[in-house]
Simulated scan of single mutants.
Amino acid sequence: MLINWVYLLAAILFEVLGTTCMKLSEGFNNLIPSILIFVFYGCGFTFSTLALEKLDISFAYSIWSGLGTALIASIGIIWFRESMSLVKFASIALIIMGVIGINASK
């Protein structure tokens, strides 16, 4: 069961890397990030599939999407210098609380 958690965390990491490469590709104009989008998403979906072998889909997907969203928003703010506002911060916090709520109901 621990390996399924490792798979899920790997899936999240690869999804975040793929999404970051979308931004870096500048509309598929930069070759390396454009190629890496497909590599990272392929790895992400592979690891998601492996994680779902033993984890409940509602549980795994809520963690995958919630943590992925929070990480991408953080990368946008820190790396790409996107604006940070109280509303954006509160929205990220609500996503995390929603994931906790879904998993607490298990």
Rank of each mutant, 00 (worst) to 15 (best):
N30F: 14
T19N: 10
L9A: 14
I32N: 14
F38R: 01
W5M: 09
I12V: 04
G66P: 02
I92T: 10
T20A: 04
E15I: 10
N4M: 11
S83W: 11
A60S: 11
V87R: 15
F80R: 09
M84A: 11
S65H: 02
G76M: 05
V16D: 10
S91L: 10
S74E: 09
V39E: 06
G27K: 04
L9Y: 12
S62D: 11
D56Q: 11
I77D: 08
L71P: 00
F59Y: 13
G66D: 06
G18Q: 01
I102G: 11
E53S: 05
S74A: 15
F14R: 14
K88C: 00
E15M: 15
F89H: 03
L36M: 12
A11V: 05
K106T: 14
A93Q: 05
I35G: 10
C21H: 07
G18T: 00
S105T: 07
K23L: 04
L55K: 12
F47T: 02
V87Y: 15
A90N: 06
W79T: 09
I77P: 03
F45W: 09
A93N: 03
I77A: 15
I35Q: 10
Y7T: 08
G66E: 03
N29Y: 11
W79G: 03
I3Y: 08
G101E: 09
S48L: 15
S58F: 08
M22V: 13
G76R: 04
G66Y: 09
S48R: 12
S25T: 00
I102F: 14
S85E: 06
F45L: 08
I96P: 01
L71W: 00
F14L: 14
A10E: 06
V39S: 01
L55I: 12
N103L: 06
W5I: 07
V16T: 07
K106C: 13
I96R: 05
L50R: 03
N30K: 15
W79A: 12
S105L: 12
M84I: 13
A70W: 04
F80A: 08
G101K: 10
T19G: 07
V87H: 15
I63R: 07
R81S: 13
V16G: 06
G42L: 01
F47L: 06
G101C: 11
L8T: 02
A73G: 12
S25C: 02
F45P: 00
I78A: 04
G98V: 04
G76Y: 07
I57K: 10
N30Q: 15
I12P: 00
L2T: 13
T20V: 02
L13W: 13
K106Y: 15
K23M: 03
L17V: 07
K88A: 00
G42K: 04
I12C: 01
I63H: 08
I32G: 12
